[in-house]
Design a binder for these strands. Structure first.
Ligand SMILES: [Mn+2]
Ligand SMILES: [Mn+2]
Ligand SMILES: [Zn+2]
Ligand SMILES: [Zn+2]
Lengths: 131, 131
DNA sequence: CGATTAGATGAAAATGATTATCAGTACCGT
DNA sequence: ACGGTACTGATAATCATTTTCATCTAATCG
């Protein structure tokens, strides 16, 4: 690689400051305010490119907000896991893979005539701070 | 009520012709081709308004496609259920609520300090026709 | 009946997120 | 210095969805 992306670190630092899923514009707002980049904050284009690349590499988790925005978050672990996130503030708790879920998926795979069955399982709630 | 929506029936008929989730533009394309509306097909605006209203009323299921489009489908049953849909053609099979999932959600609710925990569980695969 | 009026509709514009383009720049190995 | 490659930022393009607004429709009232 000829050149290492300049803002990867800064973007990750912003994401690491909270456990919430963040949008590209939120990330930029944080970088703007924190003056953490020596040469000034990156462009919005660069942020879009950075998070897109990182989520392909598995460094970031991605979700689609109900409003249709894509949100990003540092992925805590490379193994399968789920997310329980607060509908009010967006705070996220990672939930380890549960055997029962895998069993249910397997059962459905057997009963149906679909192949290559995959699944998503996500949880929402209201976090203690928001109660 | 002074005036009743003119295209509700036509939109539902299109959705009932397949078990796939459909986008607004797909619905319009079908209405265009089928010439099923006496006075001509509705505008795209009307379709957006119609599916939005119907999904609020619980008549339609909604999902966000990975590409960020909102897709709609006649909801077969008012009780909780899941969807197994084909990644290739979009064909959908409805999966009845599974007790194990509810149990897992309940366990997570107890272990975490989140309140009002809800969940989504969706399945994708490749349908027999697409294999 | 004719006027009133709340909804419904369609065309067009506005919005908003994301992506594509493209020119300029920094870095690297030669 | 040179050539190649990747990164960046500004801008324009895309695309789905929403908003706006003028017009139409049909039920209701006098
Ligand atoms: Mn994660
Ligand atoms: Mn359904
Ligand atoms: Zn919260
Ligand atoms: Zn299929």
């Amino acid at each position: 690689m000829v050149n290492t992306p300049k803002y990867d670190e800064a973007v990750l630092q912003v994401l690491d400051r909270s456990s919430r899923f963040r949008s590209c514009r939120e990330i930029l707002r944080d970088l703007d305010r924190s003056h953490s980049c020596a040469t000034g904050p990156p462009s919005l284009s660069t942020i879009y490119r950075t998070v897109h690349r990182m989520s392909q590499e598995g460094v970031l988790d991605t979700i689609q907000s109900p409003e249709g925005e894509r949100l990003y978050r540092r992925c805590g672990t490379p193994v399968r896991h789920y997310h329980l996130f607060c509908r009010v503030c967006g705070e996220v708790e990672e939930i380890a893979q549960v055997a029962e879920i895998a069993a249910v998926v397997e059962k459905i795979r057997c009963l149906s005539d679909f192949a290559q069955v995959d699944h998503t399982f996500e949880l929402t709630g209201v976090c203690p701070r928001c109660l």
